[in-house]
Amino acid sequence: MLRDITLGQYYQTDSVIHRLDPRVKLTATVCYIISLFIVDNIAGYLIAGLFLAMIIRLSKVPLKFMVRGMKSILFLLVIAVVFNLFLTPGEVVLTFWKLKITREGIRLACFMAIRLVFLIIGSSVMTLTTTPNNLTDGMEKLLGPLRHLKVPVHEISMMMSIALRFIPILLEETDKIMKAQIARGADFESGNLLKKAKSLVPLLVPLFISAFRRANDLAMAMEARCYRGGEHRTKMKPLIYQKRDRMAYGVLALYLAVCVAVGRILL
């Protein structure tokens, strides 16, 4: 029941997108998100959609994996759409009781939905095609200059990569503890909010204890394998830009240019 979260789950296959330098993918994801906010017309979203479709195609990741990640934000999506739909002032098209739907509202709600969907799918493409280790490597390298400002870049990226590795394990564990407590008659569903919150204690206490135990074990295992922070460390997979990475940057620049042009000119 908790395994539907795709974010942070790597999909293993071999594709151009998988082989791209994580820095390219990180930059591209950030740029793509920005582009979603630059454009605000149908042509623009069409371009953004086509671009995303092309990337997904190239990544060879089945579409259903991307869509599965959507389930977890469905609630957010519905709220965003409803708010935009009913609360945008403008030309009234429909009236339900006290709620008015305006032409602008429909337009904004649609755009908001598209934006959110693209945003989530766009970032899932990155996490599905990049191993978390690779991703944090990319982040470490991109943020490297911050080291001079005494930001512990290596440590942060190491923490993130470990967190990502343990998410699936802890989710599975949550599932198991929940079942075990249900077997002891626990009820996680009924009752008011306070009762529900209280019923989580038998779930959360064991979960935290387990997480601490794992953290302790892992720290010991890392030390035993000579881990001593970022210094003296070499990389098994050092990041070196290839021809395909430079090409990808080119494509990205082109895409951004088109988005700006479409967003500004064709309003």
Binding site: Y10, T131, P132, N133, S161, I162, L164, R165, I169, R213, R214, D217, L218, M220, A221, M222, A224, R225
Partner: peptide, 12 residues
């Protein structure tokens, strides 16, 4: 160590 899950650091 004993617990196979708690000593693997890499995602691959």
């Amino acid at each position: 160590f004993q617990n196979p899950d708690n000593q693997i650091i890499g995602q691959v």
